[in-house]
Simulated scan of single mutants.
Amino acid sequence: MRTIAATGFMQFSHGDPTMTRPCACCGEPFEPRLQVPDQTFCTSPDCQRGRKREWQRAKLQSDPGYRINQHAVQQAWSQRNPDYWRRYREAQPDYSDLSQQPMTTTAGAIAWLIL
């Protein structure tokens, strides 16, 4: 058994399945799968979405081709769905009403963002 300095986790040479570690998203302890010894996220759907977001953020920053492709895909979707935001505002009148109210104070701006 040895401690890996970068992560602070204990590494067992025999692959101890009872070893738990905190999830990088929610912080709850979980048992990593034996097939994925470096697993850092638990299996919770929210944490898996967080893992995907983290991967996409890193990929967008490090891979120009991926970034260009994502931009093209978003543009194509936007062209195929030109009325999306109009239909969204019609279906969500509370959202539309809030966006039309003037923000006079910083507290008001913060309160609007929290909604």
Score class of each variant (00 low, 15 high):
39 Q>Y: 05
6 A>V: 13
29 P>W: 03
35 Q>D: 15
77 W>D: 07
110 I>H: 04
45 P>N: 10
30 F>M: 01
22 P>A: 14
35 Q>L: 08
58 A>W: 05
65 G>D: 11
79 Q>I: 09
106 T>V: 11
38 D>H: 13
68 I>V: 11
108 G>A: 04
69 N>S: 13
28 E>Q: 13
15 G>T: 03
16 D>W: 08
17 P>H: 05
19 M>K: 04
41 F>L: 07
50 G>D: 11
94 D>Q: 13
14 H>G: 07
16 D>K: 07
115 L>H: 12
81 N>P: 01
35 Q>V: 09
84 Y>C: 03
18 T>I: 00
44 S>I: 04
20 T>G: 05
9 F>S: 04
87 R>N: 14
24 A>V: 01
99 S>T: 14
36 V>N: 12
32 P>I: 02
36 V>K: 15
90 E>S: 09
15 G>Y: 04
72 A>L: 10
6 A>D: 14
112 W>K: 15
77 W>P: 00
25 C>K: 14
47 C>K: 01
106 T>E: 11
94 D>R: 11
46 D>P: 08
73 V>W: 04
100 Q>N: 12
71 H>D: 13
4 I>R: 15
23 C>F: 03
28 E>H: 10
28 E>D: 06
64 P>C: 03
57 R>W: 00
110 I>W: 05
26 C>L: 02
51 R>Y: 01
39 Q>N: 04
91 A>G: 13
88 Y>D: 07
13 S>K: 10
86 R>G: 00
40 T>G: 06
31 E>H: 14
57 R>S: 06
10 M>C: 09
44 S>N: 11
99 S>K: 13
76 A>S: 06
109 A>P: 00
64 P>H: 08
38 D>Y: 11
105 T>R: 06
99 S>D: 14
74 Q>C: 09
57 R>A: 09
30 F>T: 03
42 C>Q: 01
55 W>I: 09
22 P>W: 03
11 Q>D: 08
14 H>Q: 12
100 Q>Y: 04
115 L>W: 06
101 Q>K: 15
10 M>F: 09
6 A>N: 10
30 F>N: 01
10 M>A: 15
14 H>K: 10
43 T>G: 14
98 L>Y: 04
22 P>F: 03
96 S>I: 00
3 T>M: 07
73 V>S: 08
19 M>C: 05
77 W>S: 05
77 W>G: 01
82 P>M: 07
53 R>G: 03
54 E>Y: 03
12 F>I: 02
77 W>M: 09
3 T>F: 12
43 T>H: 12
31 E>F: 10
67 R>V: 00
96 S>N: 12
86 R>M: 02
50 G>P: 02
4 I>W: 09
30 F>R: 03
82 P>E: 06
81 N>I: 00
54 E>R: 14
114 I>A: 13
66 Y>Q: 08
91 A>C: 06
108 G>F: 01
107 A>N: 06
103 M>L: 13
20 T>P: 03
39 Q>C: 05
111 A>T: 07
66 Y>R: 10
46 D>H: 10
91 A>N: 13
20 T>R: 06
5 A>Q: 10
85 W>T: 08
11 Q>M: 07
26 C>T: 01
52 K>R: 14
83 D>K: 12
10 M>E: 13
56 Q>T: 10
